[in-house]
Each structure stands twice: as structure tokens, then as C-alpha cells.
């Protein structure tokens, strides 16, 4: 499905929405549409309910972590250099380093079971990776996003506003970090996971504070 007409159609029907086509250079040719979180629900509803689109089936929801990366680019700069006969203008290679913007991303693969077409790939990006990680949840529109968004919250730490039951799904409730992030560091010991059982709890406290359980040597 070509995205240019779809983009024009969405822009005409949802005033104020900002869309951008993200090109995919690989042979698969699956390009995607970057949507702004403010209009995401309106866009999703339009895609689901418009009679000629009817994307009733949200197949896959993926979280992706894009930490800040350093891009270095070589450019030629004209500089005045001290030569043997006084200052001369010369072309010098200079490396310019830029940082990419750090963000988290969610990718949605939509298909239509009614009309048997697709995929349309939507992407949404958070503002950063630290505390502005809110995105609207698609679970009220497609139930299939339920467990998948919980998984992304669990493993990436994206907060889906409007999700009916946003809890950890694969890790235990007391777990604090987000293991799928690129900069995740494993703890020294997974063994002492806190459980409701007192003995294990004591051992865990002892493990993290260095105290011996029960005061004995």
C-alpha cells in the first residue's frame, strides 16, 4: 500500500495532524508513517472505521529504543593556516560530531481482515528516554494491543496513557529496571528476587545491605 495518498487523506480528514513518511531502504520496501501522539487516537479510529480502509486487525506492536548516538561527518573547511610565507588560506578536513536525539519508539503493524490488505506501519516516538515517555494507548481501539503494550511498558518503560491495566507482564512487579533498553546493565544477582516468603526476603535484605540474617555470625 502506497503511503502518499493515505497521508494526504489523513491530513485532509484530521485537521492539525502531523505525519511524516519514514522511508525504508531495505528490499522489503515496507515504509512507515510517523504520527504525532496528540492525534494518534483520531488517526487510529479513522484507519479502523473508514469504509475503504478498515484496518480492523492490529497485528504487531514493537518497542524500539534509540539512545543518543554520535554521528561523525567529515567536511572540508577553509582555514587560514600559517605557511612559510605568512598566513595562507587552505582546505582542511574537519570532523563534525553531532548527537542524534534520544527517544523510544513504538511500531504498529496494521492489517485489514475485512478487505485483506496491509500492512500499514505506524510509528510513534516519545520526547526522550528519561521522564517524558508517555504515549497514547491503542488498547481501547484494538484489544490486541493489550498484552503487547504491557510488554513494552515492562521491557522499555513507555507509559501508555489510557491503557486499562498497565502492569508488568513478564518481569515481576517489584522489578525496577527496563531490560530491553540498550543501556540496561544486569544486576549482580538475579537469584535473590524478592518474594512473599519471609526467609527469602531476609536473605535478600542481607544480600543488599551486607547484614547477616538473624544477627548470627
Amino acid at each position: 500500500m502506497t503511503l502518499e495518498p493515505l497521508k494526504a487523506e489523513l491530513e485532509a480528514n484530521i485537521p492539525g495532524c502531523q505525519l511524516e513518511i519514514v522511508n525504508n531502504p531495505s528490499p522489503s520496501g515496507q515504509h512507515s508513517l510517523l504520527i504525532d501522539p496528540g492525534h494518534a487516537l483520531a488517526i487510529a479510529l479513522y484507519l479502523r472505521d473508514a469504509a475503504h480502509l478498515r484496518f480492523d486487525y492490529l497485528s504487531n506492536v514493537t518497542g524500539v529504543d534509540w539512545p543518543s548516538r554520535e554521528l561523525s561527518e567529515k567536511i572540508k573547511v577553509k582555514k587560514i593556516v600559517d605557511g612559510p610565507d605568512g598566513p595562507v588560506e587552505k582546505e582542511v578536513d574537519e570532523v563534525v560530531k553531532t548527537q542524534t536525539h534520544a527517544h523510544l519508539e513504538v511500531v504498529y503493524h496494521l492489517y485489514s481482515m475485512a478487505l485483506k490488505h496491509g500492512p500499514v506501519i505506524l510509528r510513534m516516538r516519545t520526547e526522550d528516554r528519561a521522564d517524558r515517555v508517555h504515549l497514547p494507548s491503542f488498547t481501547p481501539i484494538w484489544r490486541s494491543a493489550d498484552f503487547q503494550e504491557r510488554e513494552i511498558f515492562d521491557l522499555y518503560g513507555i507509559l501508555f496513557d489510557g491503557h486499562p491495566d498497565l502492569r508488568r507482564i513478564l518481569m515481576w512487579d517489584e522489578f525496577e529496571d527496563f531490560p530491553m533498553r540498550r543501556d540496561y546493565v544486569e544486576p549482580d544477582d538475579y537469584e535473590y528476587e524478592p518474594t512473599a516468603h519471609d526467609d527469602v526476603l531476609k536473605k535478600t535484605i542481607a544480600h543488599y545491605t551486607g547484614e547477616t540474617p538473624g544477627g548470627a555470625a
Partner: peptide
């Protein structure tokens, strides 16, 4: 080493739609 890009491949596995989404 595939060139940078992404692909989603899916098949009808015995249990349902099994898909793999890869970003290179």
C-alpha cells in the same frame, strides 16, 4: 550483514500468525 532497513515477515504457523520484525 543486511543493509540498514527493516522488515516484517509473517506466516500461518499452526497456532496463528507468527511474525518476526527485524531492524537492521
Amino acid at each position: 550483514r543486511p543493509k540498514p532497513g527493516e522488515a516484517y515477515g509473517r506466516i500461518e504457523a499452526p497456532k496463528g500468525e507468527l511474525g518476526f520484525y527485524l531492524i537492521s
